[in-house]
């Protein structure tokens, strides 16, 4: 529907998942910052598309390359960033996006200039072992299913809320959607990094338009509150099953965040 929007969506995901895949904390953190910038590009490009009476969707044509080393991941990102440049419009926004990308390319070149950065990536090895934790197989299984389920849900929520935010003229709704998007970004980041630790990092599946084109906001919010309640139950169950103090505390913390999401969603009713 809109090639630039689709490519930006794919690039946002690639930068985000490169950040999850790479173990070096400094590179991980910098790439995550760039992924958030790419998400804002996507938002602004979407606003321009709607302002010109066109539309966009969330189709994508990509797979996550399960690369075995940091340099292969970085080189693949470089190619993708270079390829998207010709699609940017000659506008103030287009110039802004190009200069952001140029700076990212410079940072990626810096990473590539230090051979010691090229270490093995274990995020896709499917071993499902958390090295510094003593988790039983049953606990690992429960965690695996939770992470697949919830990483998809967070990605889904980010895109649904962004879709609705781009189409509302109501300031309260706009702010609530922004809060919910920010919260889901944090959850996706947390779960993505956990998946990488377990060696099961994978892209969330693509959203079908039946999922994100919301015709009845009130019903959507009512259903969404029920889903948040279900997510709370899942977090609580997982927290009880995982016999690791640090992880249990984390899932309790997520559980309390879900409670507040319900309060935020009630403001939309």
């Amino acid at each position: 529907m809109n090639k630039l929007y689709q490519k930006k969506h794919e690039l946002w995901l690639h930068i985000t998942f490169a950040s999850f895949a790479i173990g070096n904390e400094e590179i991980k953190s910098r790439l995550y910052d760039f992924s958030q910038i790419a998400f804002r590009h996507m938002k602004w490009l979407g606003e321009d598309i709607l302002a010109s009476n066109q539309d966009y969707n969330y189709d994508r044509d990509m797979s996550l390359k399960k690369e075995a080393s940091v340099f292969i991941i970085i080189n693949s990102l470089v190619k993708e960033i270079e390829a998207i440049q010709e699609l940017y419009p000659d506008t103030i926004l287009g110039e802004r996006v190009k200069t952001d990308d140029a700076y990212l390319l410079e940072y990626l070149a810096q990473i590539l200039s230090f051979p010691m950065n090229d270490v093995v990536v274990t995020s896709f090895n499917m071993k499902r072992v958390w090295l510094d934790k003593n988790l039983s197989q049953e606990q690992i299984d429960a965690l695996t299913l939770f992470l697949f389920e919830e990483s998809y849900k967070e990605y889904e929520l980010i895109l649904i809320y962004a879709y609705m935010q781009a189409r509302t003229n109501d300031a309260l709704q706009f702010n609530v959607f922004q809060d919910l998007i920010d919260e889901s970004h944090f959850h996706l980041k947390s779960f993505g990094n956990m998946m990488a630790k377990l060696g099961i990092l994978t892209l969330p599946r693509m959203l079908h338009e039946m999922t994100y084109i919301v015709k009845d906001l009130k019903q959507f919010v009512v259903d969404g509150i029920a889903e948040e309640e279900a997510a709370k139950v899942m977090c609580k169950e997982l927290s009880e099953r995982i016999k690791d103090a640090e992880l249990s505390k984390f899932f309790d913390f997520i559980n309390y965040q879900e409670s507040y999401h319900i309060e935020l969603m009630k403001k939309l009713l």
Partner: peptide, 10 residues
């Protein structure tokens, strides 16, 4: 790449 990876039971 990971064809020989042994996936644990469960």
């Amino acid at each position: 790449m990971f064809e020989d990876t042994k996936v644990p039971e469960g």
